[in-house]
């Protein structure tokens, strides 16, 4: 007995340590090292990839995708030439500054600092980073007026990107627009992209417009969705005017 007591007196600290560390190790094992990983994350925070670097990566990716689109468009053009399709004019884009906003509160318009002298025409599509914003409703020699998609008088034929449900996009005087579907039961959900429809006579097909924010199917005769425009209209300073082949004035006649 005395032997055991002396042994305990001598080694109890070590034993306690052993028990504690063993318990802790067991705990770590049972929790799959959760605490360790959490501490590791906290310590490594300063070295984690930051948002700016992520932004740079995204930019590179965007650039890469743009190059692929350009290449595919060129290829598409060549194939169409081979198929003896009527020649499609290359889209001509003109950057124009926004010099004024709407002169009353019932219209959603912009005035651009370029006009017919720069080649702008009534009906040309106007887009901004993010997507389509409207079309030109009148031109003077050095200015032009844009009717925005958010204007209540604006109607655009659109298609929901994922389910290909068609509808009409109508302005609501603020950043949001209403999409009224043709189908009774559109298979759309929040987050779906909205693009211009291939049937639209006013705009080139498949231009990005925005995202569905919420879907209201309560009125089955008239299903609707709220669409948030992708282009930040209130912060824009420049827009791109696209003189497209579908624009009536620039329609190219088939080759003889």
């Amino acid at each position: 007995m005395y032997f055991l007591y002396r042994y305990w007196e001598r080694y109890r600290i070590a034993l306690l340590f052993l028990l504690l560390s063993g318990g802790a190790a067991w705990l770590v094992r049972q929790t799959h090292g959760a605490a360790v990983m959490e501490v590791y994350r906290l310590l490594s925070l300063p070295f984690q990839p930051n948002a700016e670097a992520q932004q740079l990566l995204l930019q590179s990716q965007t650039w890469e995708l743009q190059q692929r689109i350009t290449a595919l468009e060129a290829q598409n053009q060549r194939l169409e030439t081979l198929l003896k399709q009527p020649a499609i004019a290359q889209n001509k884009s003109i950057a124009a500054p926004i010099i004024a906003r709407s002169a009353d509160n019932w219209w959603q318009q912009l005035t651009l600092g370029k006009g017919s002298q720069d080649g702008l025409k009534v009906g040309a599509a106007v887009s901004a980073p993010g997507g389509l914003v409207g079309r030109i409703s009148s031109v003077t020699p050095y200015t032009s007026r844009v009717l925005l998609l958010t204007d209540p008088n604006s109607r655009v034929g659109v298609v929901a990107g994922r389910s290909r449900d068609m509808g009409i996009l109508r302005g609501q005087s603020d950043q949001q627009t209403v999409l009224e579907f043709f189908e009774k039961d559109p298979k759309v959900r929040a987050g779906d992209p909205v693009l211009t429809s291939t049937l639209s006579s006013l705009f080139p097909a498949n231009l990005a417009i925005g995202q569905i924010e919420s879907v209201d199917l309560s009125n089955t005769a008239n299903p609707k969705a709220i669409v948030q425009l992708a282009a930040p209209l209130s912060n824009l300073e420049w827009v791109i005017v696209t003189l497209n082949a579908r624009t009536p004035q620039t329609m190219v006649s088939p080759r003889p």
Binding site: A100, R101, A103, N105, T111
Partner: peptide
Amino acid sequence: CAMAMPVSLPSMELTGVGPN
């Protein structure tokens, strides 16, 4: 006055509406 209508300066606006 007519030329001031379409101007939108941050200090002259309230919820996107300017003076008439």
